[in-house]
Design a protein around this nucleic acid. Structure first.
Lengths: 348, 348
DNA sequence: TTGAAAGCGGTACCAG
DNA sequence: CTGGTACCGCTTTCAA
């Protein structure tokens, strides 16, 4: 990039400088550079102005422009925790389409802390962002409702709300769960347990509901203790949960987990019980995080297209902003099962 | 968060509204809210103003403020590719300390594309960011030099430049390499190969130089073909490189790689050659990315404190901005070897 | 097609 | 300590 810094000290050239250099009026320079539709500029004059701008290394001041136009080409993206492996592709996807449409991404990681979320939200709002993408929401999140009502377009990314109809880009969790269940039943499993993530996200809740419904629908209603909602998302959470199940008499022959780390926790519990995966117990994970294909045994898991979810979320928001907020659509993408070696036919 | 939106439509209250509501002059309201040092305000008046502001749900307009003050509490963060596992902790660390100091993080993922980088840089600069954190730089990056000279404080994150003395937060790669080598020689290895990442990042270059220097320093100068610079960062790159080495007569008994995926590529090459890791050949990775402790065999690797690197980079930049750019310090953090099971004593 | 001038929402300098 | 006011850099309406 030629930043073309003509000036020695940091004094950035303004539109006034460009106009003077081009020998035209400030207003003309403005019109020439921003290609005003309503007020055409003589092509020759325009060329002159553009040359002057290039020579001076002029970069329009977005701050001044925003103040004047009341439009700020910036979008706030709120993430609960970047160390969660599903977040990077989400953010990456969103940033790419936002940039493509000229929007700057204002990034904030709330660290799963409500206080931090409030602080970050206030920060983003103070910039008069054109919209907000939230990946932080709990199902009962009161913020989003207030926010949309406050006039800032909001899109939920990978999560959504129970009560409020906020546009969202998510994944059809029931498909993921269904594929997992069908894969297992296809292998002859009938006692399938579910070790779920907490229910305060829509994803967690939907997976939980889908599991119960689908198992029932397939004539395999699980006993209540085979459907457990863990306290957290960690390996350890699943490990202790599965240990309990394995100690009970009617232990499952297969277990589906709410995320991949929990699936690894199952591996640990299975080993600890002197059993083996997949010979004695099959395990299915969720998310297909990196390297789950390299663990032992390679994990059968539900792959979720987070990168695309991010792109779609951004697309939805851009549409809403450009269409004047008329669009209130939502998008559901489809996950798919990746079969590896942590699942095997049920023991006869 | 109580957004306290008192107004029904999206019309955000301005300072003028607050002043009117509080029965004071615009200027007084400004001083009361921004706690002007030089122009004290009567505590009672101030309280009145603050109450009015709260009642109206007033959020100061950062855009207007920035225009007037020429200070924009926003920092641009340029990342080469969020799907590189070292990036998320870097960004997370940086965002946290930036937010702590009141700076908004303008995030941009350049997708390793110079054109995208130019575009994003222009975007960030148009916001008159107070500073820039670059994790994208090649060693010969011409941009950073131009940028610093242009007046915008720049800090390099996890990478640095050859020629230009730009402040940076990095890691002492020679320590990482040294620990790896010493661990290996301690196990009796003498023919140690290095399969490095490309040299256009400072990290890649430093690891490469450190390996050669340190091996020589320990009286184990490696034959030239045992020090290879791969074309890329992928598993496959290392796999083909190692295959060649294993086919040669004086094959190494241990190999150190430039990143963890490449270490996994070595696993593949070793298996393909009918050998075993660590019994026949030891492998050491670099970065300690998630789940490298779960692969088979669990990978011995150099752990790099990327989260802290991110924090330090942001800290450096904040200092430079507040101290008026006088500080031109750099920081080096220290990596450490994590010994797992991919390394074993050399065969006698 | 171009010039002139009025602000956007704040801050800071000046006077009182 | 508070009121008045110029102005940051740009867009946009109104005239010419």
């Amino acid at each position: 990039m030629s930043t073309g810094m003509a000036d020695p000290a940091g004094a950035k050239p303004t539109l006034r400088d460009v106009a003077r250099a081009a020998g035209v009026h400030l207003a003309t320079a403005s019109r020439a550079l921003s290609g005003s539709k309503t007020r055409p500029v003589n092509p020759q004059t325009a060329a002159l102005v553009r040359r002057a701008a290039a020579d001076l290394g002029y970069v329009p001041d977005q701050v001044a422009r925003s103040l004047r136009t009341h439009r700020t080409p910036a979008i706030g993206v709120l993430i609960p925790d970047m160390s969660n492996p599903v977040m990077p592709p989400l953010v990456r996807g969103a940033e790419q389409v936002l940039a493509q449409h000229g929007f700057t991404t204002l990034f904030a990681d709330t660290d799963n802390d409500p206080a931090a979320e409030t602080q970050r939200l206030r920060m983003l709002l103070s910039w008069r962002v054109a919209g907000l993408i939230l990946a932080t929401a709990r199902r009962d999140q009161p913020l989003a409702a207030e926010l949309t009502q406050s006039g800032v377009p909001v899109v939920m990314m990978s999560r959504k709300l129970d009560a409020t109809p906020v546009p969202s880009a998510t994944v059809d969790e029931s498909v993921g769960i269904a594929e997992a269940i069908d894969h297992l039943t296809g292998l002859g499993h009938r006692r399938i347990a579910y070790l779920g993530v907490p229910l305060w996200t829509s994803a967690g809740h939907e997976r939980h509901v889908a599991f119960t419904d689908l198992m029932r629908g397939r004539g395999l209603p699980p006993p209540p203790h085979h459907v457990v909602v863990c306290d957290g998302y960690s390996e350890r959470d699943a490990e202790v949960a599965l240990r309990a199940l394995l100690a009970a008499p009617d232990r499952p022959t297969a277990v589906l987990t709410g995320n991949d780390m929990m699936a690894l926790g199952c591996y640990a519990a299975i080993r600890a019980a002197g059993l083996r995966c997949p010979e004695d117990i099959s395990v299915v994970g969720y998310n297909d995080m990196p390297l789950t294909d390299r663990v032992e045994p390679p994990l059968t898991t539900v792959r979720v297209p987070y990168y695309d979810v991010g792109r779609q979320a951004a697309g939805l928001l851009v549409d809403a902003i450009l269409d004047g907020g008329s669009a209130n659509r939502s998008i559901r993408l489809t996950p798919s099962l990746v079969v590896r070696n942590s699942t095997a036919p049920a023991r006869p």
